[in-house]
Simulated assay, not measured.
Amino acid sequence: MIDLLHINHVRGLEETSLSLGPSLNLWVGDNGAGKTSVLEAVSILSSGRSFVTSRSKAVITFDKPGLTVFGCVRGESRSHRLAIHVGREDERKLRLDGLTARGQAALSRVLPVLYITPHTTDLISGSPSIRRRFLDWGAFHWSGGSSSYFTSLKRAILQRNAVLRDGILDLSVLEPWDAQIASYGEVIDDWRKTFLDCVRPLFESLCYRLELGFPLSLFYKNGWGPGPLHEALKKNRPREAKAKSTLVGPQRADFEVLRDGERASDVLSRGQLKVANLALTLSQLHAASHLGISPVLCFDDVGAELDDAFIPRVWQAVFETNSQVLATGIDVGRMGLSSKWLRDAEVFHVKHGVIEPK
C-alpha cells in the first residue's frame, strides 16, 4: 500500500506530493488532464516502465532531463521508501530504504501492482508474451520475489542461442546450457502452474458473477510438452540447429482461455471478451490476496468501455480483496461507485497537469 507518492517530471504533471488513503483513491478530470500519468508514475516505480508505453523517453516531461518518482510503501511487517530516476537515455537510479537497489526486482517485490485499463482485452486475444507476463507476475510474487531464476534462465537461453547461431556441428556442446535451462526452467514452471491453479477456480467463479453467461476454462502450456525439459531440449537440438534458435522451453509458455474446447479469442464477441478479460484480471487480484500478496490496483478510465449496470459488479469484486485502489475517470458520478464505497475515498481533481484535493 502506498502512503505517500511524489512525482516529478512525468509527462505534463506539475511536481506533486500525494498522501493516499488505504482503500480507494480517485483522480477525476477532463480527458488529457493528466490523470493516467499518475498511474504511469506508480507503474514506473514498481516495474520500471509505464503500462502505456515501453518508451521511457515518452513519459519524461518534454523539456526535462529525466523523471523521478518516490513512494512510501507500507507492507505487512514494515514500511519501505522507494525511488526511481529515469533519464532520457534510459539511465536509471534505483533506491530502496536509502540504499542503491541492485535491480528493479527489489522495488517490484515490495510494490506489486496490477492494472485494469481500456486495453485489458489484449490479455486473451494478444500475443503469448502478454500472458507470460501474467504468469510471471504471479510466479515472481508467489516465490517471494526471487528474480534470480528468471534472469539466470534468460541468460542461459541467450547464450545457447548465440552458440546455435555460430552453426555448430557437434550438438553435444549444448549440454551445459540445456542443463541450466532445465534447472531454472522447471522451477519457474512449477511457480507458474501453482499460480494458475490458484487463479483457475477464481476465474470460473468471476465469469459467473460478472454474468458472462457460460463457463470458460484455462489450459496451461509449459512450452515443451510432456516429459522433462532437459529431454525435450536434447530431442530438439537438430531442429534448433537449423533454426539457429531455441524453439522449446519455458520462454514459449502460454495458457489458453477456452469455451467448450475452442479458443475464446476465436468464438467470443468483443463484449464477451471484455467481460472475460476483466474476470481474468480480477481473478489474478483475488489469487494474489489468497496467496498473501497485497497488490495495488490501478484502474484507468473507469467507465470508458463498461456499461453503467456492469461497473458495480466489477467494483464489488475489487473491494472484496481489500486492495488499495488508484482509479481515474471523468467524474466521480460516472464511475459506478456507491456511497458506501466513496465514504472513505480520497478524491483528487486534475486540470492541466495540476492535482488538487477535491
Rank of each mutant, 00 (worst) to 15 (best):
K93L: 12
K93P: 02
G75F: 06
R95F: 10
H80K: 02
L67V: 01
V110L: 06
D97M: 05
T61C: 04
T100N: 11
L82E: 00
R92W: 06
G103Q: 14
A101N: 05
P118S: 09
T61G: 07
V86K: 09
V110P: 00
A101V: 03
I116P: 04
C72Y: 09
T68M: 13
G75Y: 05
R81C: 02
E76G: 12
P65C: 12
S108P: 04
D90V: 05
H119N: 14
S108Y: 02
V113I: 10
C72D: 15
V86I: 10
S79H: 08
K93M: 08
L107N: 11
K93N: 07
H85F: 04
P112L: 13
A106H: 12
G66Y: 01
T117K: 13
L111S: 01
P65V: 10
R109V: 02
F62K: 15
E89M: 07
I60V: 12
T117R: 14
F62Q: 14
L114S: 01
V110F: 07
P65H: 09
G75W: 07
D90F: 03
I116L: 15
H119G: 06
T61V: 02
K64F: 09
D63V: 10
P112K: 15
D63R: 13
V86G: 01
R102A: 12
T61S: 15
V113G: 05
R95C: 07
H119S: 15
G66E: 15
R92L: 11
G98M: 06
H119Q: 15
D90M: 03
I84F: 04
F70S: 14
R88Q: 10
E91M: 05
G87F: 01
V69Y: 00
T61M: 07
R78Y: 01
L114K: 02
L82Q: 00
S108R: 08
A106P: 06
R95L: 13
V113S: 11
L99I: 06
L99D: 08
A105G: 12
V110G: 01
R88N: 10
C72T: 13
I60K: 01
A106M: 10
R109F: 05
G103A: 15
R109I: 06
R102T: 11
R92C: 09
G87P: 03
G71K: 02
V110Q: 04
L107M: 11
R81T: 04
Y115M: 14
G75T: 08
R81Q: 07
F70Y: 12
R81D: 05
